[in-house]
């Protein structure tokens, strides 16, 4: 049952996302869309001394992709680049804690993809 997916905290994060917005001068940023649904997420990072000091995500998406972006960005705060790079699919599923069908897993993993792009994409 997909109703399992729409738990209170997922819906809360959809309505009131964490770390959503724009950073004026990020050191790193990346945007990507999910070709399946057209959803688009951007992640901006401020990395200083190898550490993520600040970050925001922006975009539109379903409850699953928005909740997962909130949870991922929350986890990333103060991580080193290496620690951020080591975050994998299982970590995301662990964070979101809901059963997902193969199609909807892609929604949950979009922000992880964007993060990987952002870590490689320093501005200047």
């Amino acid at each position: 049952m997909s109703l399992e997916m729409y738990r209170e905290y997922v819906l809360d994060l959809y309505k009131n996302p964490l770390n959503k917005g724009i950073i004026e001068n990020p050191s790193h940023e990346f945007m990507k869309n999910n070709p399946l649904c057209g959803d688009e997420i951007k992640i901006q990072l401020v990395i200083k001394n190898n550490k993520i000091e600040n970050l925001k995500f922006d975009g539109i998406g379903c409850a699953i992709s928005m909740a997962s972006a909130s949870l991922l960005t929350e986890k990333l705060k103060n991580l080193t680049i290496e620690e951020a790079k080591n975050i994998n699919k299982d970590d995301i599923l662990e964070l979101i804690k809901i059963p997902l069908s193969p199609v909807r897993i892609k929604c949950a993993l979009l922000s992880l993809d964007v993060l990987r792009g952002a870590l490689e994409n320093a501005r200047n």
Binding site: S2, M5, Y6, G38, D39, G61, C62, I64, R104, C107
Partner: peptide, 19 residues
Amino acid sequence: HPHDVASILNDYNIAIRAG
């Protein structure tokens, strides 16, 4: 979001397209 609409409708055995 359309995907959320379609996912929940699926619980009621209703197949629609979203995207």
